[in-house]
Computed example of a mutant assay.
Amino acid sequence: MQKSPQLNPSIQTMFSQSTAVLSQPSVATFEKFEWRGGVQSAYLYVLVAAVVSAVIAAIFAPFHREVTFFGQLLTRLILVPLGFAVFTGAVYAIGKSLFKGTGTYAEVAYTFALFYVPLSILGTVIGIIPILGWLANVLISLAIIYFGFLAVQSSMNIRTNGEGIALLVLSGLAYFLVYAIVGGLLASVFIAGAVLSGT
Rank of each mutant, 00 (worst) to 15 (best):
V117G: 11
I126L: 14
V48L: 15
A194W: 08
L22C: 03
N137T: 06
G172H: 06
F15S: 12
Y179P: 11
I181F: 15
F69E: 04
K100F: 12
I140N: 00
Q6I: 00
A90E: 11
E163V: 08
V195R: 01
R36C: 04
L122R: 01
I59C: 07
A166R: 09
S26G: 04
I121Y: 01
L98A: 13
G71W: 11
P5Y: 03
A109M: 07
A180T: 14
Y179H: 13
H64T: 14
F63C: 04
F84M: 10
Q2E: 11
P9L: 10
V195Q: 04
L47G: 10
F33Q: 01
T111D: 02
F63M: 09
A90K: 12
I78V: 15
S120Y: 00
N157L: 03
L79E: 10
V67G: 08
Y92V: 03
A109T: 04
A85T: 05
P5T: 06
V138S: 01
V125M: 10
L22S: 05
T199I: 15
N157R: 15
I140S: 01
E66C: 02
G183T: 11
M14I: 06
N137S: 09
S10T: 15
G83V: 05
A194M: 10
G83F: 02
L82G: 05
V189N: 03
F190W: 15
I11A: 13
I126G: 00
Y45E: 04
A42P: 12
L79P: 06
V27Y: 06
N8Q: 11
G71A: 09
S188L: 05
I56N: 09
F176Q: 09
N8A: 07
P9T: 10
P130T: 09
S154Q: 14
A143K: 00
G37V: 03
F190C: 05
A57T: 08
A85H: 05
